[in-house]
Design a protein around this nucleic acid. Structure first.
Length: 320
RNA sequence: CCCGCCUUAGCUCAAUUUGGCAGAGCAUCGGACUGUAGAUCCGAGGGUUGCUGGUUCAAAUCCGGCAGGCGGGACCA
């Protein structure tokens, strides 16, 4: 694969790469590392899977992938005791592996290195460079909802910025909610004499209820290890206005999980409603926009295909 | 350290004045209506009233203690 096709693959399905020029330099330099951090979560869902797929793309282009199980971050975000969170992270690692990351993926537990002297000193230094407003703003889409704002809330982004340096990340990946923390890193790591990573942001998947973000706490997710009946039921219950492509979770699932794996989707439809259709992504969008495809037919097709796409995950769980 | 206010369903809050079956909105679940979902109707579930001790026939309500939150004061070589 040449550099340009690597960049194309990396960019595919993302909202932004900051910056593409730097990415090119990194690739040409070689021996590169890509990093992403996840707060351990009770269920690993399609929102997580979008970024995991991107890490797999990065592996295909020669990146070493490090996945941070950000237990300390989750702790700072009020998700429970470190003990409880660590336990969940074991399950998360299993989910990530089941999604197809290669054998040499490195999984790192945050609390095992983030409390060391060197790390803490860097956090303090960064604290002197970062305004309180900026730190709080960077957490707007990440912090657990609460009126009782804790100091932990502003330590969180600082810790994350230092992680990027310590984990030697050439590239940092995250959903768009991570953008402001990433920008903080790009601005402040150089001030500390370090190199800031290239930042890659993926779109956030809407919840099945149509809300802005799929999230395990809101029960609007499809888990990667959900059983076929559950997937079918959740898609059946999903928000899906007729003729509306924008912000439509069912369309998004097709875009992010079906079309990357196949050129066309087969839509099975009773003859009285027009019979079967086989559509490319662009055709699907066009025909749905014109209200020539009924949401229920779309849902049936998407659940059938999604169930197939996630089959390897369920298989992995059966044998591991 | 001192003073005041607050803590009730998953969430936001009523009911405290005058002790008398703990309610509403939103959310959740179910039904109706749509060839999906949502919206809209209709219905249901949901509670250790922060914890604890007391007064009382009876306490969310009154009294004491504790915890947490918010605000103020004091201290400031």
């Amino acid at each position: 694969m040449d550099t340009d096709s690597k960049i194309d693959l990396i960019k595919k399905g993302t909202l932004e790469v900051i910056t593409e020029e730097e990415l090119k330099e990194k690739i040409e330099k070689g021996n590169t590392t890509a990093y992403i951090g996840y707060e351990p979560s009770g269920r690993v869902h399609l929102g997580h899977a979008i970024t995991v797929q991107k890490m797999i793309d990065l592996q295909k282009t020669g990146f070493k992938v490090k996945i941070l199980l950000a237990d300390l971050h989750a702790y700072l975000n009020g998700k429970g005791s470190l003990e409880e969170i660590r336990k969940i992270s074991e399950y998360n690692i299993k989910c990530f592996k089941a999604l197809g990351l290669s054998e040499d993926t490195e999984f790192i537990l945050g609390s095992e290195f983030q409390r060391g002297q060197e790390h803490v000193n860097m956090v303090y230094e960064l604290a002197t460079l970062t305004t309180l407003t900026r730190a709080k703003r960077s957490m707007a889409q990440i912090i657990r909802e609460s009126k009782e704002h804790k100091v932990a809330e502003v330590i969180y982004p600082l810790l994350q910025v230092v992680d990027m340096h310590v984990l030697n990340a050439d590239v940092a990946v995250g959903g768009m909610e991570q953008r402001k923390i990433h920008m903080l890193a790009r601005e402040n790591l150089p001030k500390m004499g370090f190199t800031a990573p290239v930042c890659i942001h993926t779109p956030l998947l809407h919840g099945t209820d149509g809300s802005d973000k799929m999230s395990s706490s809101k029960n609007n997710f499809i888990a990667v290890d959900d059983e076929p009946e559950v997937i079918k039921e959740k898609i059946q219950k999903s928000f899906c206005p007729q003729g509306q492509v924008k912000d439509n979770p069912v369309i998004e699932i097709a875009e992010h999980f079906i079309f990357p794996r196949m050129e066309t989707i087969l839509i099975e439809r009773p003859a009285k409603f027009g019979g079967n259709l086989e559509l490319t992504h662009d055709e699907l969008v066009k025909i749905y926009d014109k209200e020539e495809l009924h949401p229920l037919d779309l849902k049936n097709a998407v659940s059938k295909h999604l169930i197939e796409v996630l089959e390897p995950v369920r298989e992995y769980f059966k044998s591991n």
